[in-house]
Design a protein around this nucleic acid. Structure first.
Lengths: 203, 203
DNA sequence: CAATTTACTGAACACTGTTCATACATTTGT
DNA sequence: ACAAATGTATGAACAGTGTTCAGTAAATTG
């Protein structure tokens, strides 16, 4: 029946309408600062209507959470074409940081905020993140197969590498980088990434 | 006049009473989850009374923010006694992570939450953090004086080192470490720190 | 002892996320 | 074509939040 299909489409259209409005406001005014009423006003519906399409505010956040991971995976997908594992590893690190700089709001959602985590026991959505991490482990293993990172556990090493790039992103994102005022932050981050790459190469 | 002194003491006593209650509740129930009314109830005063001693909820947070830095500085102060710069650097990294594990609530306040940052343009309070970072730069320079980290800018390198340990703490604190379920987190963090130390030693 | 300053509070304001009975529109069965 | 049943949207309300302020009670002063 085409009528059920139409209903389904309408439903998804409404969800997208809500999510887009929410996204815009979240980016504009931050997170806690955007109310359900504000979202409702933007799409010209009653606040109660939103609850017909999303269980609560957290559901909205979780949807954006997954969308963030899809974007990141899309952005980093092309890197699988890089043949040399070490080069790929370094490129992944740079792409990761770049993503966080270009989409700080998504990044915060994905890796910093507490909200999207709680009540998300199921790794169903979160699985996308685990997948990205596993591709990191894979590339580390490939590097090891070529004689690098000898005597290191790939999992632990991958975690350290992740920590390193995440640390850069998080300090920037949470504005703690601002205690450093002697040089521009872009330079700081660029240099840190260069050193990071240099270290990986030398190990 | 002793009477003015007493008033001053009473005032500070009240501030401490409020701050202690706030601290307890923050740790117990998280941050956004503790209301001014809850704090007031705990100290058996009216909510309005709190506003006679703290401008608003942010002021409370900022006070805890500085207290966190004082604790951290105290904890890490003894490390200045470590003679060898590299050993000191590594010990500082370990102490940093340990602090974050023992005081996740303070850590979140100091390095993750957005709230204590906004409206805190003055580095008066934030200066304590900058001081800790500068002692990191110093120890890096000392290492360089002994022939390590050749050709690296101390500031940028220090930032990378900070990023690395902060990354570990932040992933743990924000529960993103939980995507890794194959080995216990303590082991993961311990190993990552060992690798981190190993890398610093080999550079 | 009266006047003044200080410490405190109850009630209110403008918000927040969320729920639910009610009203409207649409689809269905006859 | 009309009535019944389903689905969709909403206004009003609830319980909660941070915060303010007029008014009260206590302590300090003259």
């Amino acid at each position: 029946m085409g009528i059920e299909d139409r209903k389904q489409r309408e439903r998804e259209g409404m969800q997208e309408l809500i999510l887009d409005a929410a996204k815009t406001l979240f980016v504009e005014r931050g997170f806690e600062a955007t109310s359900m009423r504000a979202i409702a006003e933007k799409i010209e519906y009653s606040p109660a209507t939103i609850y017909l399409y999303y269980k609560d505010k957290n559901a909205l956040i979780q949807d954006l959470h997954s969308e963030g991971f899809m974007r990141m995976n899309r952005d980093m997908g092309v890197l699988q074409l890089v043949r040399d594992p070490l080069e790929r590893l370094i490129a992944m690190g740079r792409a990761y940081v770049q993503f966080s700089l270009e989409n700080p709001d998504y990044y915060e959602l994905m890796f910093i905020m507490h909200k999207p985590m709680q009540g998300l026991e199921k790794p169903e959505e979160w699985k996308m993140g685990a997948l990205t991490f596993e591709s990191l482990i894979e590339v580390v293993k490939e590097c090891q197969a070529l004689g690098r990172f000898v005597g290191k556990e790939p999992l632990q090493l991958s975690f350290l590498i992740w920590s390193c790039v995440h640390g850069i992103c998080a300090l920037k994102c949470c504005r703690r980088i601002e205690i450093i005022q002697t040089i521009p932050h872009e330079v700081l981050i660029k240099d840190a990434l260069d050193y990071f790459s240099d270290f990986l190469t030398r190990l």
